[in-house]
Amino acid sequence: MKFSREDLIRSRESAWFLIPERERLLERLSQLVTDPPRHRERSLGLIGPANSGKSRLITQFMKLHPPVYGEELDLKPILLLRMSPLRNTSQLVDRLLALVSPVKVIGNEDERTEHLLNLLEVVGTKVIVLDEFHDVLSVGSQTRHHMLTKIKDLNNAGLRIVPVGTDRMVDALSINPELSTRFTRARLDALSFEDSLGVAAAFFAHLGLEEWTAPYQKVAEMVYMRTSGTIGNQLDVLEEVVLQATSTQVKVTIRLYQDALELLGF
């Protein structure tokens, strides 16, 4: 059996690992779609360092509540928008409009915002996920203030907003205290050693390499310690070992894992 890096990337993106704490987070996110509306919507902010599995969690969340395609209308319960390229509120509104309408909407920003809210009600959008939320800090202070106010207005209109980002996201939210109080914050912590073992077993099973699980026990503690229990770091190492072993048909050894850790800088 041989894998390309593209094969491994696709496998990694499609896999979901049964980690209890992340299952509970997934359930809390799903309640944002299924719970009845409230007078003032509260939501969940996801915080974690790079490679901690935030994007994987959001991908799984969206898989559980996918678009429903109809002959005349597609229902979209969740929208995902990355904040990194946005530089003003006008772009924020236009990018959200593009997610639900193939037709460019004209008019001033207030008119486009009103049109957006009407469209979101029609397509049944309950949740807007704002990934890389910490990038709000990369724009000027006045623009930042307007951006956060616009997000608060979307929340006031009944939409549940899920900001996702690094610890800097807390600083971004705190700029607008009224908005900041509307989010319960959940942190994606490092894996326990037992969860780390489960991820490796599930990874190998997903690739049809179940027999690799037993040899992994010999190096599991080393990999866990050097990757700091971070799920993305662990998967990087596992992928590198699979790629090297299957492309060169060499035996999987402790040395191969050590080389992968060194190559990836762990």
Results as ranks from 00 to 15, higher is better:
N51S: 15
R28N: 11
K150W: 13
L120V: 02
R168H: 13
D74S: 14
W212Y: 14
L96N: 05
R24V: 14
D189T: 14
D236C: 04
R160T: 12
D167Q: 10
L119W: 04
P163K: 04
E240S: 11
S174P: 07
L32K: 00
E23P: 11
K54E: 03
V105M: 06
I106K: 13
E21A: 11
D74A: 15
S30R: 02
L92F: 14
R112H: 15
S101C: 14
E109C: 13
G208F: 03
E262L: 14
R22H: 10
Y69W: 03
L188V: 09
S55W: 09
V223I: 05
Q142C: 02
T230Q: 10
A202E: 15
T253W: 01
V252C: 05
G53A: 04
V223D: 02
I175R: 07
T181G: 14
A220S: 14
D7W: 06
D131W: 05
L32T: 07
S101A: 13
S247F: 03
R42H: 13
M169Q: 08
L209R: 10
R24I: 06
L73I: 08
K150L: 15
Q234L: 13
R182A: 07
P36R: 02
R28V: 05
T113N: 13
L261I: 03
Q142D: 09
P163H: 04
V129K: 05
K54M: 10
R95A: 11
L46N: 04
M62C: 15
P85I: 09
R112T: 07
F266Y: 12
F203S: 07
L18A: 12
S14Q: 08
R160V: 08
N108P: 04
A214P: 01
R226H: 10
R12W: 07
K76D: 06
V103Y: 03
F61E: 06
R28W: 00
W16F: 08
T89Q: 11
N156W: 02
A186S: 08
E132T: 04
L8F: 02
E240Q: 12
R187N: 05
M147L: 15
R226G: 02
H65A: 09
V136Q: 06
G140Q: 08
I58P: 08
P77E: 06
V162H: 08
S52Q: 09
L8V: 00
S43I: 01
P37H: 00
E239Q: 08
V237T: 06
R144V: 01
F133H: 08
P85G: 11
V136P: 02
M169S: 12
I128M: 02
K76Y: 12
G165C: 13
I175Q: 07
E178H: 07
E210W: 05
A172P: 08
D259L: 12
L25M: 09
M222D: 11
R10E: 10
D94G: 10
D167E: 15
T181S: 15
A245Y: 05
M83V: 15
E210A: 14
V170P: 07
I47D: 00
L263P: 01
W212E: 02
L75I: 06
